[in-house]
Computed example of a mutant assay.
Amino acid sequence: MPIHVNTKETLNGDFMEFRAPSAAAELNARGLEYLTKNLSDPKAGSQLFVSLREQLGNCVESYPDWHPILSHPEQSRTIHVSSITQVKQYEGIDHNTLFVRGFVTCPYSKDMSDKLVERVNAITGLSAWHLDGPLYSDHAYPVVVEALDVELEADGTIRSRDALAWCAEQLVKGARDAQVAETWWNMRRHILGSPHGSRSSLIVNQFTGGHMRKFLEAFNDSGMYGPIKEWLLDMLSEKKRKKISETLIEAALNQRDKLGNSFEFELRGESCKAEIRDTFGDGEELSIRVTIGESDLVTSGFFYQKSNTLQVSDPNGKRVLAEKFL
């Protein structure tokens, strides 16, 4: 009996193509609601938010590692900082909303907000100040942290020459302690920020992102970081990624009756290890994981026995190996 594949959703799936204007509109609306819905005077809060948007740019979900908000505060070389919550100088931040040029945070302690402003203003290139009115809560003490050197292009992204210079500095800095080279598909979120597309985000446009990719790939090819580690397969289309996972998991399910719940099987010249378990012990849902080599290729999914339906995750691993299962 053929297995029906759930085409409406996949585990960790992303079906929406990235479009900057719609992404910005959605995040700005979300940021406005988050910062004003609990206020006694939401209209005044909305005016404050609009003022912040004009000064700091669009709302974003996360910063690239090279962004001055993350890179200007001095940090230990042994710590990889990819979020403002990891920056010790930002201790006490709470209820945060990020923008392209900086962020607003709304702690409930005035003493904490005063100390935050003092610490940030001691960092070259950053500035912090108290807002005149409330955001998030009438009882909060909102503080704005701004990266003074960040200038925006007409499209709202960071000026290309600055972003490229900061990105190159960060990539070179990371080489000294690197053990492996990461592909563009592994590193996009750390280089572009989020939300992002294949080579652009609300923080960098396609021209800038394209050159950042060239930087990374040139450094990878030089051997500066070490051997290249492949993991994400986002360079393949969603249809192809799904097909790879379906091929492996369906093959494992077809072998289950003969080999049990943990076994090895061969498919297209590769030795595959399958692990299958009854998720809840009631026979309704099976969890399946297929691995080739030492995580050279990995995928997983769920099989719903009553409806004979398969739901799969994206595969991860080496591209050349993955393409054998298309």
Rank of each mutant, 00 (worst) to 15 (best):
Pro64Asp: 05
Phe325Arg: 10
Ile84Tyr: 08
Met16Tyr: 09
Phe103Met: 01
Leu131Gly: 08
Leu171Met: 04
Phe280Cys: 15
Gly283Thr: 14
Asp296Asn: 11
Trp166Ala: 03
Ala128Leu: 07
Phe219Leu: 01
Lys243Gln: 13
Gly283Tyr: 11
Gly13Thr: 14
Val312Tyr: 11
Lys242Val: 07
Trp231Ser: 13
Glu285Asp: 13
Met212Ala: 01
Ser127Glu: 15
Ala122Met: 06
Arg53His: 04
Lys8His: 09
Gly193Pro: 05
Ser109Pro: 13
Leu27Phe: 06
Asp296Leu: 14
Arg213Phe: 00
Ile3Tyr: 15
Tyr304Ile: 11
Leu135His: 06
Phe303Leu: 03
Leu98Ser: 10
His211Gln: 09
Ile69His: 06
Thr183Ala: 03
Pro134Asp: 15
Lys273Gly: 15
Asn12Pro: 01
Glu153Val: 02
Pro2Leu: 12
Arg19Ile: 04
Cys272Thr: 13
Thr7Phe: 14
Asp296Met: 13
Leu116Gly: 00
Val290Leu: 08
Pro21Glu: 01
Leu27Ser: 01
Val312Trp: 06
His67Arg: 00
Glu238Asp: 07
Gln89Asn: 12
Lys110Ser: 02
Ala322Asn: 07
Ser262Pro: 00
Gly45His: 10
Ile79Thr: 11
Leu297Arg: 12
Arg119Phe: 01
Val5Asp: 01
Leu148Pro: 02
Gly156Trp: 00
Ser245Met: 08
Asn28Glu: 00
Asn254Cys: 08
Gly57Cys: 05
Arg101Pro: 03
Cys272Pro: 08
Phe303Val: 05
Asp114Val: 12
Ile191Lys: 03
Leu11Asn: 09
Glu146His: 03
Arg289Phe: 05
Ile93Asp: 01
Leu233Cys: 11
Val87Glu: 07
Asp162Trp: 07
Leu216Tyr: 06
Leu171Asn: 09
Arg30Ser: 13
Met187Phe: 01
Ser287Arg: 08
Glu146Met: 03
Ile191Arg: 05
Leu321Ser: 03
Glu285Tyr: 11
Ser237Thr: 13
Leu248Ala: 07
Phe15Leu: 08
Tyr141Pro: 15
Pro142Met: 02
Asp41Asn: 06
Ser76Phe: 14
Gly281Leu: 11
Tyr63Leu: 03
Tyr304Pro: 15
Pro227Met: 02
Arg256Leu: 12
Ser62Gln: 01
Phe280His: 14
Cys106Ile: 04
Ser295His: 15
Gln311Thr: 14
Lys242Leu: 04
Leu326Trp: 10
Leu11Tyr: 13
Ser113Asp: 10
Ala163Ser: 01
Leu216Cys: 04
Leu48Asn: 02
Asn316Thr: 13
Thr85Val: 04
Asp149Ile: 10
Ser22Glu: 05
Ala252Tyr: 15
Tyr108Phe: 14
Glu9Asn: 05
Glu118Gly: 02
Ala128Asp: 09
Gly174Gln: 12
Gln311Tyr: 11
Ala128Met: 00
Glu284Tyr: 08
Val50Lys: 00
Ala163Asp: 11
Lys115Gln: 13
Gly283Ile: 14
Asp65Pro: 03
Phe265Gly: 12
Val204Ala: 06
Gly317His: 08
Ile3Arg: 05
Ser262Ile: 09
Val320Tyr: 10
Gly269Tyr: 14
His80Ala: 11
Asp278Arg: 07
Ala29Gln: 03
Cys272Ala: 12
Glu294Asn: 15
Glu285Pro: 14
Ala218Asn: 03
His190Val: 06
His4Trp: 10
Gly197Gln: 02
